[in-house]
Amino acid sequence: MNELSWFVVRRLFQGLVVVLTVTAIVFVVTRLIGDPVAIMLPLDATEAQRETLRRALGLDQPVYLQFIDFLRSLFALDFGESYWQHRPNIDIIRERLPATFQLVGAGMLLAVVLALPLGTVAAMYPGRLPDRITSALSLVGLSVPLFWLGLILIYVFAAQLRILPSSGPGTFVHLVLPAVTLALPSAGRLAMLVRSSLIDELNAPYVKTAVAKGLPLWRILGVHTYVNAAVPTLTMIGWEVTRSLAGHTIIVETVFAWPGLGLAAIQAIQREDLLLLQAIVFVVALMVVVINLALDLVYKFIDPRISV
C-alpha cells in the first residue's frame, strides 16, 4: 500500500474510535445515569407496564450485552421508533436533514464570502476601516448570544423594516435571516484568522521577493499567500461547520422555527423522546467525523508535508 492509502486507513480508524467513544458516552448517559423507563412512561404507569417496556428495550439483559446490542442496532442505522411521532426515528432524521444542510450551507458560504475579503483587506491595511469592521465582527462572534442576535435581526428586518419574514420554512427569503444569524459570528472569527495568517505570510521573505520582482498584487495574493494561508483557514472553516451542525443550528433553528435536525432535538427533549434525541446525537457525531476526515484528505492535497 502506498502512503496515501495508509493515511486514509489510519484516519478512518481514528474516526471509528471517535464514533465508538460517542456511542459509549450516549450509552452511559441514557442507560446508566438515567432510567429510560422512568422518563418514557407516565408517573402512574403500573409495575407490569414498566416491566414490559424494560424487556422491550432490552434493559433486563446484562450491561455488556446491552451495549453490544446498542452498537449493532446503531450501525445498522436502526434507531427504533419515535415515542413522539410513532414512526421510525431514521425517517424523521431523513426528513429534517435537508433543512439543516440548507441552513449550514447558506450560513457558512455567507461567512466565507464575508470573511475572505474583509480579512484580506484588514491584513493589508491594519488599523483602517475594514480592519475595525473585522475586529468589531469578531467581538460580536465572541460576546453576543446567538439566540439574541437572531431575535434582534427579526425585530429590525421583520418587525420594523418589514422586508423579511420573521420565521418558518418556505421560500428562499425565509432562509435569509437564519443564514445571516448563523454566518455573522462565524464570519468574525474567520476574518480574524484570515487576517492574522495573511499578515504572517505577507511578512515572509518570499513575498518581499515577489514584490521586488514586480509581480502584480493579485498574483502575489492568489498564487502565493492564499495557498499558504489555506490550511489554517480551512481548519477553521471545518471547525465552524461542525460547530454549526452540532450546536449553533439548534439555537438558530429554535429562534426561526426552521424545521431542521436541531429543532427536532429540542422537540424531542420537550416530548421526552429519548430514543429520537439519541439517534440525532449519533447521526450528528457521524457527520462530524466524516467532515473531519474529508478535511484531513484535503490538507494532504494542499500540503503534502502533512502526515498523520
Partner: peptide
C-alpha cells in the same frame, strides 16, 4: 475525541436524562 465531539448536543442529552 471529546473535543472533536461538539458539546451542546451531549449537554442536551445529559439534561434530558437528568
Amino acid at each position: 475525541v471529546h473535543i472533536a465531539f461538539p458539546g451542546l448536543l451531549i449537554s442536551l442529552l445529559i439534561i434530558a436524562v437528568l
